[in-house]
Amino acid sequence: MLILTCPYCGVDAEETELAPGGEAHLKRFGPGASDEEFRDYLFARENPKGVHFERWRHAHGCGKWFHAARCTMTLEVFGTYPAQTTKPPKAIREAITAKRPGWTWREFE
């Protein structure tokens, strides 16, 4: 059972306090988007063995959404950060590089 540190309230929250929200850093496509763009936005998801970026909500806590970077193999958590960003912050990316040199995930590395 995972523990993730909520970057808003600083609580090391166990999984029962959290609600998962799927893949992070999706770009919304609305009216005007092509069928392919919209399909990918709604349904195309990464399924990596290794580094992954996810959305979580501290549902039984401060109620805030945040992002977590973790390894799907070892469940190592590289870091958590607020959701108000379109890409993983530099510090998080560097933390991952230190542990998993050469990692890539979607357009990020």
Binding site: A59, A83, Q84
Partner: peptide, 13 residues
């Protein structure tokens, strides 16, 4: 309520 907060926090922050 959670749905509203989700859009406010993660898309239109």
């Amino acid at each position: 309520h959670a749905h509203m907060e989700e859009w406010l926090q993660t898309e239109w922050w």
